[in-house]
């Protein structure tokens, strides 16, 4: 109930913010709506039991990337550039194609039986969230069908245990271990002799080097240079 309510609030904020980014012509207001949209995406991540990812989204996207973008707006906007508008024909064409794309996507999502698809995925050790959900549902059924008070109490206790386990929000430790190359969420409770699941050690290392390269590259690209004076091809 609460989850549903929160989902709708943040889904509407996300979509509304995104639409406002498209509809606004003023760059600073676009940045403001982008903050609304990305912040609500972070809230959706929290709703999806991805605490670490939600916090990372807030820190990196909303606190980092958007600040960088606003910084860029400040450095580049000088009156005449703050409102660079596309021609109405382009806008019409773009939004028309966008609407068609949206329709195709929504139709596609709607026509797939996702329960069937996820049932067909080889469940090599369910994710804890899924395990908890199924267990939870099972326990709830038990609770509903329980007749004696003892049964009822036992079922309630079990549900609380599941909740306590889920609330631990264990994705931090699991994500850390997976970047280490270990996958306890997959490899535990597996029959002996099975090959271990792949971790993310190599991608993690690659992305670390990538970030270092980007740091140096961006600093090199953005270094202070002689400002271009009005030359051919530039009209103010």
């Amino acid at each position: 109930m609460t989850e549903q309510l929160l989902f709708w609030v943040f889904a509407i904020l996300t979509c509304g913010g995104a639409v406002a980014v498209v509809a606004t012509q003023n760059v600073v207001r676009m940045a403001f709506w982008l903050v609304v949209s990305l912040g609500s995406v972070a809230a959706l991540f929290f709703l999806l039991h991805a605490d670490f990812l939600g916090a990372a989204q807030l820190l990196i996207y909303v606190g980092g990337t958007v600040v960088l973008l606003v910084f860029g707006v400040m450095l580049t906007a000088s009156g005449h550039t703050i409102k660079v508008q596309a021609s109405p024909a382009e806008v019409m064409l773009g939004s028309g194609v966008g609407l068609v794309l949206l329709f195709v996507l929504l139709f596609g999502i709607n026509s797939v039986d996702w329960a069937d698809v996820s049932a067909r995925i080889p469940a090599a050790g369910d994710s804890p969230a899924v395990v908890d959900e199924t267990q939870d549902r099972h326990l709830r059924e038990q609770l509903a069908s329980a007749t004696t008070p003892e049964e009822k109490a036992a079922a309630e206790e079990a549900i609380q245990a599941v909740h306590a386990r889920r609330q631990a929000g264990r994705t931090v430790r699991q994500l850390g271990l997976s970047f280490y190359g270990l996958r306890p969420d997959r490899d535990l409770n597996q029959p002996a002799g099975q090959s271990l699941a792949a971790g993310y050690l190599l991608p993690f290392e690659i992305i670390s080097i990538h970030l270092l390269v980007v740091l140096i590259g961006a600093a090199y690209l953005a270094r202070a240079k002689r400002r271009a004076t009005s030359g051919p091809g530039v009209d103010l």
């Binding site: 670490f52 990812l53 090599a124 899924v130 997959r186 992305i207 990538h210 970030l211």
Partner: peptide, 24 residues
């Protein structure tokens, strides 16, 4: 997908990489 299907943690890990790459 990481929450609602048995894909599990892979979705979150990928999303984290996407966030980092997007910042870069």
């Amino acid at each position: 997908f990481s929450r609602y299907t048995p894909l599990g943690l892979d979705g979150q890990a990928t999303a984290l990489f996407v966030v980092v790459l997007a910042a870069a």
